[in-house]
């Protein structure tokens, strides 16, 4: 149903680093789940519209009134690394 190379591709898209030892188990688990959910492929869905949300509502907007938001200190208070003015991250190019 799903093979090792697809699992590695999906893990890359999801930004998950898999250990070599877990790849086989995840491949088997996902295959078994996909086998089960694939039963919907037998249904005739011609002409059936998709449902994204059960409550029919679109574009519910609040009044466009400026309100105070959280302060910078509060927002930065839970960050793993900050210089006091923003979030610090490792270099995108590699290295820290």
């Amino acid at each position: 149903m799903i093979d090792r190379s697809e699992v590695l591709h999906i893990a890359r898209l999801a930004r998950l680093s898999l250990e070599e030892t877990e790849i086989e188990a995840i491949t088997a688990e996902l295959s078994s789940i996909l086998d089960h959910v694939d039963q919907i492929s037998s249904l005739d869905l011609e002409g059936v519209e998709p449902t994204a949300h059960s409550v029919a509502q679109s574009g519910a907007l609040r009044p466009d009134v400026p309100v105070e938001s959280l302060g910078k200190d509060a927002v930065l208070s839970q960050a793993p690394a900050t210089d006091g003015s923003g979030f610090e991250v490792p270099s995108p190019g590699g290295g820290s």
């Binding site: 960050a79 793993p80 991250v89 490792p90 290295g95 820290s96």
Partner: peptide, 20 residues
């Protein structure tokens, strides 16, 4: 993703490695 809140594990190999 280890940027704004919660856990960060940084192997020191750049941003993408930190995410993973």
């Amino acid at each position: 993703d280890g940027v704004r809140y919660g856990l960060r594990v940084d192997p020191g190999e750049g941003l993408d490695a930190m995410y993973g």
